[in-house]
Design a protein around this nucleic acid. Structure first.
Length: 209
DNA sequence: ATCAGGATGCGCT
DNA sequence: GCGCATCCTGATA
């Protein structure tokens, strides 16, 4: 349960994004339980961050969940896809973590039906994992992870051998913040978006033993 | 295996 | 209308 855990309010958002790697994300979907280990995240640092939805305090109906308490579900639609975020700071501090990829763990049959793909392509991108989960609307906005059908289990957790770091994806024209190292991933895990075959660690997927 | 181009739908001006 | 926190396809080597 994420709801009352001080962890989410007790660290800067970029640190929280790193700690979320290896946590189990699940969704109790109408077709059954689906989910996987979080292998890629990005931190968005709020009003100062030129790539963030809340840059300069921007506040609209659609980004309002970012202003909610830590653990608030923020689903955003872009290019005809849906993306999943977690508000990471206390109420009215609009910082969040984008969940970009998971390694499937439960409900793989369901996820393969929801998408037309198999293999690494199942959940190796933020829009892809939402399609695999079968989420195609923003109805769960403002719910709290753990009190929702969406859950992040921070106790059932794998540990990355090494955390890879890079600039964020898809924000290249948005000022100096575009090059800041706020994307984090499990190094070598094949479900990380854009992972090249040569970089994949197919022995243990980048998890510590 | 890598890259470029286009489809996509919705929120905002 | 325009601008995206994306994804897929088809063309190249």
């Amino acid at each position: 349960m994420l709801t009352s855990d001080p962890f989410y309010a007790s660290a800067p958002t970029d640190q929280i994004a790193q700690k979320m790697l290896g946590m189990l994300l699940t969704y109790q979907s109408p077709k059954g339980l689906v989910g996987g280990w979080i292998v890629e995240t990005e931190a968005y640092m709020g009003q100062l961050d030129s790539a963030a939805h809340a840059f300069k305090g921007r506040r609209t109906a659609s980004n309002e969940p970012l202003y909610g308490p830590p653990g608030t579900v923020y689903i955003y639609s872009i290019h005809g896809r849906y993306l999943l975020d977690v508000a990471a700071q206390p109420k009215d501090v609009p910082q969040g973590v984008l969940i970009r990829a998971v390694e499937p763990f439960v409900g793989q049959e369901i996820m393969m039906k929801n998408r037309t793909k198999t293999g690494w392509d199942l959940t190796n991108g933020p829009g892809k994992l939402m399609e695999a989960f079968g989420i195609s609307d923003k109805k769960m906005n403002f719910e709290i992870f753990g009190d929702s059908k969406l859950n992040i289990d921070q106790h059932r957790k794998k540990t990355p051998k090494k955390i890879g770091v890079s600039n964020r994806v898809g924000v290249s024209n948005q000022g100096d913040w575009a090059v800041k190292p706020l994307r984090y991933f499990v190094a070598g895990n094949p479900y990380v978006s854009g992972m090249k075959k040569r970089g994949m660690d197919l022995t243990d997927f980048g998890w510590r033993a």
